[in-house]
């Protein structure tokens, strides 16, 4: 251990030297004040469009994209923003009937498949790098409020099996949560709280959809986030989602296509992930 300590102390010295010229940008307290105000504005701003729409009885015609008109709600094709918001959030409240597969792609050929089972809270994530499956992970809620996180790293041929306690999971998540993720509850949150526009009917890959546009202000590096959502014109369940971010970090567009799978034993097998033969246990850095 003495040798370990000597090695560790040497590392510490090198790290301190390497970071000796790293300082926060000046005016930290001012930036915290600004950020705190911005958080309040996001919350207030998300509520305002709903209130305005309700107050004036704003009605949007579902015609071609970008041809919204105001009018009276006596045409079956004419629905208010509030009506669409309610239909989508209600539909997503029923997502416990399904396993949701979100197929995400990025501009740089990145790809991720994420299955969620809202009824049980189970998730599986397959991440592809340069077209090859790089990792698979499942998150399984456990009794007592904790969760098991099992991950296979195909590139390094290792697997890890971690557990997080309820207390660890209760720690408030960081501001990354402001990004609408590709799971039903995150989309519901975005639709319920974002500034919503109904753009019109649109046929996507043969699906009759209603196209929605949401504006959010995620509080990560002050990035504006624009989100477009195509919901099924009959069920109001999301069919396609497109998120655009701009700024110094994470600039780009993420496109997601959803499949709503029946909760059958066959479809639930996707959550049964096991370590492939010959892979090494890397739990805790073994």
């Amino acid at each position: 251990m003495a040798d370990d300590d000597q090695f560790g102390e040497r590392l510490g010295t090198l790290l301190r030297n390497e970071l000796s010229d790293v300082y926060p940008e000046p005016g930290m307290t001012d930036r915290l004040r600004t950020r705190s105000r911005r958080n309040l504005m996001v919350r207030a701003g998300a509520i305002a469009p709903v209130a305005v729409a309700a107050a004036v009885g704003l009605v949007v015609a579902l015609g071609a994209a970008g041809t919204e008109t105001s009018g009276v709600n006596d045409d079956p094709r004419m629905v208010s923003v509030g009506y669409v918001r309610t239909q989508v959030t209600d539909a997503l409240d029923r997502s416990t009937d399904y396993i949701v597969l979100a197929h995400s792609t990025w501009a740089d050929n990145g790809r991720m498949d994420e299955w969620t089972e809202p009824a049980t809270g189970r998730r599986r994530i397959d991440l592809y790098v340069n077209g090859s499956l790089a990792s698979s992970a499942t998150e399984t809620p456990e009794a007592g409020g904790g969760a098991r996180w099992f991950q296979i790293d195909y590139q390094n041929r290792t697997w890890t099996d971690d557990h997080r306690s309820a207390a660890e999971l209760r720690v408030p998540v960081d501001s990354f949560q402001d990004f609408p993720a590709a799971d039903p509850m995150s989309i519901r949150e975005a639709v319920a709280n974002g500034s919503l526009e109904v753009m019109g009917r649109e046929t996507v890959d043969g699906h009759d959809t209603v196209r929605l546009r949401l504006k959010l202000t995620a509080d990560v590096n002050r990035l504006p986030v624009a989100m477009e959502l195509w919901v099924d014109a009959v069920t109001y369940l999301p069919y396609r989602e497109k998120i655009s971010k701009s700024g110094r970090f994470n600039e780009g567009t993420e496109s997601v296509v959803f499949s709503w799978l029946k909760r059958s034993p066959e479809n639930q097998k996707v959550f049964d992930l096991a370590a492939p033969a010959g892979f090494r246990d890397h739990t805790g850095g073994k």
Binding site: Y23, P24, D174
Partner: peptide, 28 residues
Amino acid sequence: STPLLRTAYLLTGDRGHAEDLLQVALLR
């Protein structure tokens, strides 16, 4: 702020995320 930013940098390996993490931690 300075020692915390350096710690955040070593934990995340990224200067931008370290700055953001520090701000979120101070706000909390």
